[in-house]
């Protein structure tokens, strides 16, 4: 890397730079959609009955729906709403996962067993059924989705973090720290947390797609966000009513937007994993 610094003419980037650029581009796209949707005025997807069911093209890039609303702007807005929920939910879930994972591995014994039981219990029901039950208990609506998605995505991360910390526990420097009389909390904070942070960050990013997808699924089934919110799940549920009459664009484009967002999160996550891992980061 250092030898190349002087040679300006060389355009061949090394893996590290390329991966960083890739992550940056993906992040900028997602952030752009997010901010655009957040500050979009509802006029952009206002009702124009004259233009209802306009096929895609021209003024209506993604077509118009049964009320003549511009699907392109609705999709951007909807994706933005989904992203907000995804971000909040995965942040909450990942913090629960991190705390449980570290605590379970450092405390050990009964507490460890208890956490593992909670993990298994949470994974015992099909994820979708659990989400439906939580939404049912909270009387449906946005709060039900948000809490449901936020409170059900921690088990996988807990397992990952726990496994990582269990390995750390036997290392010499951690053992030495214990021998020097440091408390369990201090050891966890000083020595373990920095080490599991990469696992945590990658896990957090890879949680987004799951959270976003589950939010869309549960909304599609009718438990989630209210029908007037332009969320991807709501838009797709609406489009189902017009599929029979051949209005395919109402379903195709919102889904594509969702897929692109999900894949980009995956790209960011996988590449961060490579970057943060010293073995593969400097290939």
């Amino acid at each position: 890397m250092f030898e190349r610094k002087g040679t300006r003419a060389r355009f061949a980037l090394n893996t590290r730079t390329r991966v960083t650029v890739l992550i940056a581009v993906a992040a900028i796209y997602l952030l752009g959609v997010f901010v655009w949707g957040l500050f979009m005025s509802p006029d952009a997807y206002a009702v124009h009955y004259a233009d209802k069911f306009t096929p895609p093209g021209g003024k209506y890039l993604f077509g118009a729906d049964f009320m003549g609303r511009n699907m392109f702007f609705r999709c951007v807005k909807g994706l933005s709403v989904s992203l907000v929920i995804g971000v909040i939910a995965s942040l909450v879930s990942s913090v629960i996962g991190l705390v449980f994972g570290v605590a379970s591995a450092t405390a050990g014994g009964r507490f460890d067993k208890f956490i593992l039981l909670c993990v298994d219990c949470c994974m015992g029901l099909p994820h979708l059924v659990l989400l439906i039950l939580i939404s049912y208990m909270l009387g449906r609506g946005a709060r039900g989705v948000l809490l449901g998605v936020a409170l059900t995505h921690w088990p996988e991360l807990t397992r990952l973090v726990r496994a990582e910390v269990l390995q750390l526990r036997t290392t010499h420097y951690v053992q030495a720290a214990y021998r020097m009389g440091k408390s369990r909390f201090r050891v966890a904070w000083d020595h373990m947390l920095p080490h599991v942070l990469p696992v945590y960050i990658v896990g957090l990013v890879l949680l987004f797609p799951h959270a976003v997808m589950h939010e869309a699924s549960i909304t599609f089934l009718g438990f989630g966000l209210p029908a007037e919110t332009p969320a991807i799940g709501v838009i797709l549920a609406e489009s189902m009513r017009h599929i029979a009459t051949g209005k395919w664009w109402l379903a195709l484009f919102p889904g594509l937007m969702l897929i692109i967002a999900v894949i980009l999160f995956d790209v960011i996550g996988e590449n961060l994993k490579r970057l943060l891992n010293p073995d593969s980061g400097n290939e």
Binding site: P209, M213, A216, S217, F220, L236, S239, M240, I243, G246, W248, A251, L252, P254, G255, L258, I259, V262, I263, D266
Partner: peptide
């Protein structure tokens, strides 16, 4: 792509 696609969306496309 399949893994990132929501099930119900694929279903809708297939149906349509």
């Amino acid at each position: 792509v399949l893994q990132s696609a929501p099930t119900f969306w694929l279903g809708l496309l297939i149906l349509s």
